[in-house]
Nucleic acid binder design. Structure first.
Length: 885
RNA sequence: GGGCGAGUAGCUCAGUUUGGUUAGAGCGCCUGCCUUACAAGCAGGAUGUCGCUGGUUCGACUCCAGUCUUGCCCACCA
């Protein structure tokens, strides 16, 4: 039987993904009795296509899901996408800008239509990409955060929060672009260093008893000052606290307050407080119940609160105010000052902190339970260190402003009555005010923060608020796989909402993935041009290779610096698996079937050895999986398949595989396939496509002893401890040592690989004799040496040979002519090296402290080694002496 | 400024929790092989004062302190 010389990843990917879907293998059944395992996907933003970080994240989720399915659990992997409010609206606005339009030109409805079009395109692209990656999501359940069902959940949660007093409306400073007339999120503000000035201004006391100096970079905001603040422990100012200032230009009385926010070291240690126009002042103002006086219009001109400066542009006003202060003798000095100014990422206009009415969630009470949940282990972070990040936020949580001044999102379900001024917060859209029945009501213009709906994701996707079977079966979910950058935004808030709404944590394990960077450790970005597009590398190397690379590099607590060469290396691994299969397949006769296990009594030592090693591999892989150490699990698989199965086992069986003994051939084929099939099942969660492809071929030969339509429906291997043979493994290790030693000597001597050489053994005990009797034939084959064993207890010294030692057994490779010179040099080098090692050991052993205090076992091992090394060294020296003559 | 990581072979990284063989892998490099599974391969080889300094210890890549370099997160200074 023959298959293609090379594996075709693209064809295989399409074929088997369709096969899995057609057979409904990703579907989670909410009504069976199997134990449940569930993961909700971190819904990708519909802003654009997936990057390599998504590939990592979803590969790991898929590994977990496929593994758990094979473990016999009922697995739900809930897929979906996130509307990503501000981000998505922005990309569409950028698109509009290229057509010379703004969202206001389109109006709310047309704009939303336009964003939906975008969503359709990118949402579909994302799903396509996830499938390209092999993700085994339950696609029938795909959700979107603006779906009807999810919107229903959002509405219900909002109303509940409102009803129990967790929601309130209050003033808040937002980043405002006076040119775009829009709010900006924090990450849409770009800070640049700028050369400004630092103004020292005299503020007179209201009682006429003198004045004090304050310093500011924004003198124009003094129009909105409502206090002057000093540090409570600042001795220079303590006596002034409680006094009043007569605010210059405005002639308004404002208090002098004490607040530890003030840094006594900076400036003059006293500052003006403008709660409506500075975020820190805003906080201070809240603490001291200060009035918030907004002095700007939406275009950053001075409004009616600015007295005579009304109508002036903000920087014009600054000039005028400074001039007026100077004229009144209140300006002490102006210093150059470097500071950072926030600009709008679109138009670079300086952003203005702007006071506006926003909805907030009171977080402190809601966060009490989430803190406990992580403390007592109901939610575990993996790696654990991320719990610090979580705690640092939840323990200092501030109220959550949830309104956003954009259009794309869940509209805030609050209606204001123009007649009685009351609010209506209903579960169904109202047609009149709940308080006065007036029809004169308006819905809040704002939408909710994207993270509001994301916070509900684990249960909203399962049909809440209805009591669905999905919720009963799959909530709480098991594992969340996400990045550390959204522990605050998302993870903490999901835990909060899960406990608040469902009374149960939304997941028990939070696996925090590494960040994927480029080979030099730089962030991947479009502008740097170092971004690796998952689709590109999948097309180039195959999906399995990309997945395996990501898994094997996913060491906990580190970022992944991804080098394309690594992917290539693991592509070679998939090819290796392919060819290992080809080797055995080549020995299959037309129509031959291999059903049934190989009879135990017909197994040779090599068979029992690989079966023993297989059990260790299974244990190691399982351990890695259970501890979320994907790198350990994949490393164990890589090593077992390549360096034990292919490098040793397949080489060991070749004589039998190609031999004339038909029964032996059948036995060895069965064992070889049995081990391969087991490895394929272990590998399947990591590299699903090639394993399915090969497994299906094996199936036609009757190799899998389970009746399944897909490798997905087989069971994940469990180790059989009774198949472990430690004594045999030790023997084989010794066997391998003989081969390494002989090959090494051959290599050093530069003996052509095809040239057969003679090797003699000096046996010191009967155990070695037995050993060689048993293992020599294969040693001879694998080393290209004489098949007739030449071994005896007393071997005449033969200086024209290279001597090797394996566990006290001496062997010599006879030199072909003309290698003496080279060999003498090598021996000398060896003696040198050996001497170094021996000296180190002797030093250690002559240390009384070491001998007395180190465990006896450790010391004994050391002594034995020293002993045999000294013998070896003596022998080499002797040989060199003889050769010298 | 606060917090959390990282520094091990030419490159990218394991290992360090629990101190004890001559510190490993992939890629790259050197030598020899197209040996009929695989040249995307096989066999062999070279390469490390484990960032630096000090401490604890019989013994430190591993534990402790300090230090340098570097990455990320948060707060950003009137």
């Amino acid at each position: 039987m023959d298959i293609a010389k090379r594996y075709d990843p693209a064809g295989s990917r399409e074929k088997w993904y369709d096969f899995w879907q057609d057979n409904n293998l990703f579907h989670a059944d909410e009504s069976n009795d199997k134990p449940a395992y569930s993961i909700v996907i971190p819904p990708p933003n519909v802003t654009g296509k997936l990057h390599i970080g998504h590939a990592l994240n979803n590969t790991l989720q898929d590994i977990l899901c496929r593994w758990k399915r094979m473990e016999g659990e009922e697995v739900l992997w809930m897929p979906g996408t996130d509307h990503a409010g501000i981000a998505t609206q922005n990309v569409v606005e950028k698109q509009l800008a290229q057509e010379g339009l703004t969202r206001h030109d389109l109006g709310r409805d047309k704009m939303l239509e336009r964003i939906w079009t975008w969503k359709k395109e990118y949402g579909d692209a994302i799903i396509h990409q996830l499938k390209y990656l092999g993700s085994s999501c339950d696609w029938d359940r795909t959700r979107f955060t603006l779906d009807e069902g999810l919107s229903h959940a959002v509405r219900e949660v909002f109303v509940r929060l409102y009803e129990d007093g967790s929601l309130y409306r209050g003033n808040y400073l937002v980043n405002w672009c006076p040119r775009c007339h829009t709010t900006l999120s924090d990450d849409e503000v770009e800070y640049t260093d700028s050369n400004g000035s630092f103004y020292y201004i005299k503020y007179p006391f209201a009682d006429g008893s003198g004045d004090m100096t304050i310093a500011t970079t924004r003198p124009e905001t003094m129009l909105g000052d409502t206090a002057v603040a000093v540090h409570p422990e600042d001795e220079r100012y303590q006596h002034l606290v409680g006094k009043e200032i007569l605010l210059p230009l405005m002639n308004r009385k404002i208090p002098i307050i004490a607040d530890s926010y003030v840094d006594p070291e900076f400036g003059v240690g006293a500052l003006k407080i403008t709660p409506a126009h500075d975020i820190n002042d805003f906080e201070v103002g809240k603490r001291h119940n200060l009035e918030q006086i907004n002095i700007f219009n939406e275009d950053a001109t001075i409004n009616g609160n600015g007295g005579v400066y009304e109508g002036m542009e903000r920087y014009q006003a600054r000039k005028k105010i400074v001039a007026d202060l100077k004229e009144q003798g209140l300006l002490i000095k102006v210093e150059d000052h470097q500071n950072r100014i926030g600009g709008c990422y679109r138009c670079n206009t300086n952003v203005e902190p702007y006071l506006s009415l926003q909805w907030f969630i009171k977080m402190k009470p809601l966060m009490e339970e989430p803190i406990k949940a992580v403390r007592d282990g109901r939610v575990k972070f993996i790696p654990k260190q991320w719990e610090n990040t979580y705690f640092s936020w939840v323990e200092n949580v501030r109220d959550w402003p949830v309104s956003r001044q954009i259009w794309w999102g869940h509209r805030i379900p609050v209606w204001y009555c123009d007649d009685c001024g009351e609010m209506t917060v209903p579960r169904e859209d109202p047609d009149c005010c709940a308080h006065c029945q007036s029809k004169n009501i308006r819905q809040d213009e704002d939408v909710l923060d994207t993270w509001f709906s994301s916070a509900l994701w684990p249960f909203s996707t399962m049909g809440w608020p209805d009591k669905t079977k999905e919720l009963a079966k799959f909530y709480p979910t098991t594992t969340l796989v996400t990045g550390h950058d959204i522990i605050y935004f998302w993870v903490a808030r999901m835990i909060m909402m899960g406990l608040y709404i469902m009374d149960e944590v939304p997941f028990s394990d939070v696996y925090i993935t590494a960040l994927v960077r480029d080979a030099q450790g730089r962030k991947m970005s479009k502008s740097l041009g170092n971004a690796i597009n998952p689709i590109d590398v999948i097309d180039k190397y195959g999906c399995d290779s990309v997945r395996f690379t990501l898994a094997i590099m996913a060491a906990q607590g580190r970022s992944i610096n991804l080098d394309e060469e690594r992917i290539e290396g693991y592509r070679n691994f998939t090819n290796k698996i392919w060819n290992a299969t080809r080797l055995i397949l080549a020995s299959i006769e037309e129509g031959e079937v291999l059903s049934g296990e190989a009879p135990q009594d017909k197994l040779e030592w090599a068979d029992r050895w690989i079966l023993s090693r297989l059990q260790h591999a299974i244990d190691a892989v399982r351990k890695g999986m259970e501890e979320y150490k994907f790198n350990d699990a994949s490393e164990a698989l890589y090593h077992f398949v390549w360096h034990e199965y292919c490098d040793w086992y397949l080489e060991l069986i070749k004589p039998r595989l190609y031999g004339d003994d038909l029964e032996a051939r059948l036995v060895v084929k069965k064992v070889a396939f049995q081990v391969l099939e087991c490895a394929l099942r272990m590998l399947h969660p990591f590299i699903p496509f090639i394993t399915e492809e090969l497994w299906q071929i094996l199936k036609t030969l009757g190799i899998p002893h389970e009746d399944a339509i897909s490798i997905m429906k087989t069971s994940y291997p469990k180790s059989d401890q009774s198949a472990i043979d430690d004594a045999l493994e030790a023997d084989v290790e010794k066997f391998q040592k003989f081969i390494y030693v002989i090959r090494n000597i051959r290599g050093e001597l530069n003996i052509a690989p095809g040239l057969e050489t003679k090797v003699e053994f000096k046996i010191s005990d009967s155990a070695d004799e037995e050993f060689l009797k048993r293992y020599y034939p294969l040693i001879a084959t694998l080393c290209k040496i004489n098949q007739d064993l030449s071994a005896s207890a007393d071997l005449e010294p033969n200086p024209a040979s290279s001597v090797g030692m394996v566990d006290g057994c001496e062997l010599r490779v006879l030199w072909p002519a003309e290698v003496e010179e080279k060999e003498i040099q090598r021996l000398q080098k060896q003696v040198e090296q050996l001497n170094k090692v021996i000296m180190g050991r002797e030093k250690k052993l002559s240390n009384k402290n070491y001998v007395d205090r180190a465990p006896e076992k450790v010391v004994q091992i050391e002594r034995d080694k020293c002993q045999s090394e000294m013998q070896e060294c003596e022998r080499l020296k002797k040989q060199l002496e003889i050769l010298a003559k």
